[in-house]
Write a protein that binds this DNA or RNA. Structure first.
Length: 821
RNA sequence: GCCCGGAUGGCGGAAUGGUAGACGCGGCGGCCUCAAAAGCCGUUGUCUGAAAGGGCGUGCGGGUUCAAAUCCCGCUCCGGGCACCA
C-alpha cells in the first residue's frame, strides 16, 4: 500500500514548481501556434469566494488542455485595481486606497495561487500601476486629438451614494445605480465623453459574426437600439420661420398624424406657447424637472396631468391639415429630435393620450376582421393615405420617404439608443484625466513626455462628496504645457471601465515601455481565443472593450485590422447562496480556504467542474459539502489506483498485443473516453467530462479486480491521468511522475484511435409498437435482414405478438428494430 | 407588454428523434473491524407481482412520427434581459 495522498504538501509543491520552472510562461516568439485564454481580470476584493474559484477553474482547465494539445498558450492575470470600495474604505477611516488595494490584491492572488490556477505572472497588470496609468492617459490624449474624446455640458446621471456621475450603462432600468442601488439624479454638469456612438453601426453589425452567447449579443443589440425611420419637418402656423422636426419609424402613417408632441425641455416650447396656455405649460415643465426618471417613465401616472396644449398648431405636410402641438413628459428630449408626430390609430401610447385629450383618431392601416379597438401597429393595407393607399406597410414607408425627400419635408434617418460614454468620475481612486485648463490656451492635453499624471498620496478622505484632488493644492495648481502660464489641473478621474477596455491588448506585451500596445505582439496573440467571465458584463465591459479595440486601431495605437477583441466568449453561471449571487459586498461568501485545508484544491476544482453545466447558476446548499466530499473520495480512489501498483508498465501496451475479451473492453472504453472528454472540453462540457473520467475509473477498477493484463491496465491509468490533468492538475502531476518519471502537463493530450474505440457487439433494442420488449446482444456489423430475423427470434417478441402478423417493420441496425402490428 | 432561457428520481444532473434517469450525492443491504473511520461489493424512478414479468413515468393539454424529454401548436409556473426610444 502506498502512503495516503498528502494533498496539501503535493499541491503547494507543484504550485511552486510550475512557477519556478516557468511551465506556463510564454515568450512572444514561441514557435507553437498561439492561443490566448483569458479570464476577466478581477476587482481585488480580498480573498477569493466560490464565484472566483469557479471562474478561474474553468479558465485553468482550458489553459492546461490547450497547452497539452501543443499550443503556445498566453495565460495572463491582473487586477482591475481602481475603484470605489478602496476609496470608501479610506473615507470610513481605513487605510489609504493604495495600501488597502494592494493588501486585497495580495489576498486574492494568494487564493488564486492556492487554487493551482496557472498564469504567466511576469505579465501581471494592475491598473493603478504608474506604467498602466501612463498609457491609459496617453490613449486618452490621442482620443482627444482625434476628436473622439470631448467635453460637453448637459444633464448627466449623478449617484448620491457614490458621489459621482455615472455612464448611462451604469444606471439600471429602474433608475437606480448599478453599484450602490441609490436613486440616480439628474445634474447639469460639464463632463468628459468618449465618442462611442461613432461606432454604433460597426458595433451592431459585427455582432452577427461573433461566436458569443446569443443572449449577450441580443443585450448589446438592444442597448445600441438602432431604429430606421425618417425625420419630418412640420411647419408652424403663424410662424413662417419656424418648423418642428420629428423622428418617426412609421413615415407611412403620416396621414394619421393628428397632433404633435414635444418634450417639455424642447427648445421651441416657449416660442410656441400662447399666453393663454402659459400657466399650463409652465406647470408641466416644472413637473418634468421635479420628477425622477422612475416617475417620468412610469406607465402608472395619470396621463391627464402629464400633457399640456401649447396653444399653437402645425401643418401636417401629408395632407395640409392643421394639427395641435402638445407637450408631454413621456417624450424624451434625449432621443430622436425630442418631438414626435402622434398617430393614435397606430401607436397605443398616442391612442391613450388622444382619448384623454379628445384628439381625433384616423386609421391609415386596415385592421384585421377580429380587431376590436385601440391602436393597431401590425401589418396591413394602407387606407385614408392618399398616394399610399393600397400599399403594404413596408412599401409605404419607402414611398413616404421618397415623397418627403422630393418635397423637402424630410429625409431617411437612423436613430440609436446608444449615447456617448461619459467617463468623468468625481473620485480620487482612478486614473487622472490628463488635461489642464489654461486661461489662455483653454483645454490642454498633458504631452506624452510629461505623463503619467499620478495621484498625490497625501490627500484627505472626507465624506464631503467632493474629490480629494479638488482640495490638494499641489495637484490642482500647475502650469500650462503650451504657454507655461498658470493652469488648473482636471481633478476628475476616469471611469474604471476605461482601464479594463484594453488590458487584454497590453497583456500581449506588458513589458513594452515605448507604446501602450505592441503591434507585433497583438497581431500574434489577438483576438483572445477564449474569454471567460460573468454575464454581468454583457453590456458595459464587453461593449466598451469592443469599442476600444476599434478606436485604438483607428487612431494608430493598435493594429487597425484587429476589430474584435474576443473571439469566443464563455459566460459562467453565478454561485448563489441564500438565493443571491455570492459576493463580498453582500456578505454571503463561502471562503475556499477551509476546503483547501480539508480536501485540497483539486477536490474543490473537481466539484465546480462536476456539479452541473458551467453556464448554469449553482446554489450553495445543504448537500454541497457532501458532493464536495464525494469528489474528494473519487480522487483518493484515483490515487490508490494510480500509485498502489508501482511504476507504470503501460507504454504502448495496446500496440504490442492482440486484444480480446476484457482487455479489448477496457481499451475500447479508454479510447471512447478520450473522444468524449476531448469533445466535451471543446464545448465547455466539463460536468460530463468528469462523469466520463469517473466511468473510466470504474472500468479500470473492475479490470484490475478481474485480472486484466497489467500493461493494458497501466496504459489505461496513464491515459486517465492525462485526461484528468487539466481538471485536477496536482494529483495528476504527482501520480504521473511517480508512475512515469515525467511531467503530465508537458505530455501530449491523448489521441483516440477510432478503430480501438469502435464497438464490435452492441445491444439491439427490439420494440413492438414502439414499446421495449427485448434487448439482444448482436454484432455491430449486422445488416437489416439479420437484425429483423434476430428480432423475430426473440421469445419476448413472439409472446408480445401473440400470433398477430406485423404490418410494418422498421430496422435501424444494429441498434433497433421496431415491429408494428 | 416584448424578447431569451428553463421545468427530467429524494437531490445535483445525463440523454437534442431510437434502451429515459449516464455520473455523482443521499438511502438501503452486505463485507472488513472488538468498534468506529476509511475502504470494498451489491442495490436504489414509481405502482404491481413470490418471481418472471407487466402497468405508469421527463410541468399541463393537444398534434406530427413506426418511434418524442427531444419536433410542432396552445397553456402554467420559475429565472433573466429589455421597455413610454416615437
Amino acid at each position: 500500500m502506498a502512503k495516503h495522498y498528502e494533498f496539501e504538501e503535493v499541491e503547494t509543491r507543484w504550485q511552486q514548481r510550475w512557477i519556478q520552472e516557468g511551465t506556463y510562461e510564454i515568450e512572444n516568439d514561441d514557435v507553437r501556434p498561439p492561443y490566448y485564454v483569458l479570464s476577466m481580470y478581477p476587482y481585488p476584493s480580498g480573498q477569493a469566494h466560490q464565484g472566483h474559484i469557479r471562474n478561474y477553474t474553468f479558465g485553468d482547465v482550458l489553459v492546461r488542455y490547450r497547452t497539452m494539445q501543443g499550443f503556445g498558450v498566453l495565460s495572463p492575470f491582473g487586477f482591475d485595481s481602481f475603484g470605489l470600495p478602496a476609496e470608501n474604505a479610506a473615507i470610513k477611516g481605513g487605510a489609504h486606497p493604495l495600501e488597502y488595494t494592494e493588501a486585497r490584491i495580495a489576498e486574492l492572488k494568494q487564493s488564486v495561487l492556492r487554487l493551482g490556477a496557472v498564469y504567466d505572472w511576469r505579465r501581471e497588470i494592475r491598473s493603478h500601476d504608474a506604467e498602466y496609468i501612463r498609457f491609459n492617459q496617453m490613449i486618452f490624449t490621442h482620443l482627444l486629438k482625434n476628436d473622439l474624446a470631448y467635453r460637453k455640458g448637459g444633464l448627466v446621471n449623478w449617484c448620491p451614494g457614490c458621489q459621482t456621475v455615472l455612464a448611462n450603462e451604469q444606471v439600471e432600468s429602474d433608475g437606480t445605480c448599478e453599484r450602490s442601488g441609490d436613486l440616480v439624479e439628474k445634474r447639469s454638469l460639464e463632463q468628459w465623453f468618449l465618442r462611442i456612438t461613432k461606432y454604433s453601426d460597426e458595433l451592431l453589425f459585427a455582432l452577427d459574426d461573433l461566436d458569443w452567447p446569443e443572449r449577450v449579443k441580443t443585450m448589446q443589440r438592444n442597448w445600441i437600439g438602432r431604429s430606421e425611420g425618417a425625420r419630418i419637418r412640420f411647419l408652424v402656423e403663424g410662424l413662417p420661420e419656424t418648423s418642428i422636426e420629428v423622428y418617426t419609424t412609421r413615415p407611412d402613417t403620416g396621414f394619421g398624424a393628428t397632433y404633435l408632441v414635444l418634450a417639455p425641455e424642447h427648445a421651441l416650447v416657449d416660442l410656441l406657447t400662447t399666453d393663454q396656455q402659459r400657466d399650463e405649460v409652465n406647470a408641466l415643465k416644472a413637473l418634468a424637472v421635479a420628477e425622477s426618471d422612475i416617475e417620468r417613465q412610469s406607465t402608472d401616472g395619470e396621463l391627464a396631468k402629464r400633457g399640456a396644449f401649447t396653444g399653437s398648431f402645425a401643418i401636417n405636410p401629408y395632407n395640409n391639415e392643421r394639427i395641435p402641438i402638445y407637450l408631454a413628459d413621456y417624450v424624451l428630449s434625449s432621443y430622436g429630435t425630442g418631438a414626435i408626430m402622434a398617430v393614435p390609430a397606430e401607436d397605443q401610447r398616442d391612442f391613450d393620450f388622444a382619448q384623454i385629450y379628445g384628439l381625433p383618431v384616423v386609421r391609415t392601416v386596415a385592421t384585421p376582421p377580429d380587431f376590436l379597438d385601440g391602436a393597431y401597429s401590425g401589418e396591413g393595407i394602407k387606407i385614408n393615405s392618399g398616394f399610399l393607399d393600397g400599399l403594404d406597410v413596408a412599401t409605404a414607408k419607402a414611398r413616404s420617404i421618397e415623397w418627403l425627400e422630393s418635397r423637402g419635408f424630410g429625409s431617411r434617418s437612423v436613430q440609436y439608443r446608444l449615447r456617448d460614454w461619459l467617463i468623468s468620475r468625481q473620485r480620487y481612486w482612478g486614473c487622472p484625466i490628463p488635461v489642464v485648463f489654461c486661461e489662455k490656451d483653454g483645454i490642454v492635453a498633458v504631452p506624452d513626455d510629461q505623463l503619467p499624471v499620478l495621484l498625490p498620496r497625501d490627500v484627505q478622505f472626507l465624506p464631503t462628496g467632493e474629490s480629494p484632488l479638488m482640495s490638494h493644492a499641489g495637484f490642482l495648481h500647475t502650469t500650462c504645457p503650451t504657454c507655461g502660464g498658470p493652469a488648473r489641473r482636471e481633478t476628475d478621474t476616469m471611469d474604471t471601465f476605461v482601464d479594463s477596455s484594453w488590458y487584454f491588448l497590453r497583456f500581449t506585451d506588458p513589458f513594452n515601455t515605448e507604446t501602450a500596445v505592441n503591434f507585433e505582439a497583438v497581431r500574434h496573440f489577438m483576438p483572445v481565443d477564449q474569454y471567460i467571465g460573468g454575464i454581468t458584463h454583457a453590456i458595459m465591459h464587453l461593449l466598451y472593450s469592443r469599442f476600444f479595440t476599434r478606436v485604438l486601431g483607428d487612431v494608430g495605437l493598435s493594429p487597425e485590422e484587429i476589430r474584435e477583441p474576443f473571439g469566443q466568449l464563455f459566460c459562467q453561471g453565478m454561485v448563489r447562496l441564500g438565493g443571491r449571487a455570492m459576493s463580498k459586498s453582500r456578505g454571503n461568501v463561502i471562503s475556499p480556504d477551509e476546503y483547501f485545508a480539508s480536501i485540497g484544491a483539486d477536490a474543490l476544482r473537481l466539484f465546480h467542474l462536476f456539479v452541473g453545466p458551467p453556464t448554469d447558476d449553482i446554489d450553495w446548499g445543504d448537500q454541497t459539502n457532501e458532493i464536495i466530499e464525494g469528489c474528494s473520495r473519487y480522487l483518493r480512489r484515483v490515487w490508490r489506483l494510480a500509485v498502489d501498483g508501482g511504476p507504470s508498465d503501460g507504454a504502448a501496451a495496446t500496440a504490442a498485443k492482440d486484444l480480446d475479451g476484457e482487455s479489448r473492453l477496457l481499451v475500447r472504453t479508454v479510447h471512447q473516453t478520450i473522444m468524449k472528454v476531448t469533445e466535451d472540453f471543446d464545448h465547455y462540457g466539463f460536468n460530463t467530462a468528469v462523469a466520463e473520467c469517473m466511468s473510466l475509473t470504474n472500468a479500470i477498477t473492475r479490470a484490475n479486480r478481474i485480472g486484466v493484463d497489467r500493461a493494458i491496465v497501466d496504459e489505461a491509468i496513464d491515459i486517465l491521468l492525462r485526461l484528468l490533468a487539466p481538471m485536477v492538475p496536482h494529483l495528476a502531476a504527482e501520480a504521473f511522475e511517480i508512475r512515469n518519471n515525467a511531467h503530465v502537463h508537458c505530455a501530449p493530450w491523448p489521441l483516440a484511435d477510432p478503430d480501438l474505440a469502435k464497438e464490435d457487439r452492441v445491444t439491439m433494442v427490439v420494440q413492438v409498437n414502439g414499446k421495449l420488449r427485448d434487448r439482444i446482444e448482436v454484432s455491430a456489423s449486422i445488416d437489416e435482414q439479420e437484425a429483423i430475423s434476430i428480432a423475430f427470434g426473440s421469445g419476448q417478441v413472439i409472446a408480445s405478438l401473440a400470433g398477430k402478423s406485423p404490418n410494418r417493420v422498421v430496422a435501424r441496425p444494429p441498434n433497433l428494430v421496431n415491429i408494428v402490428v
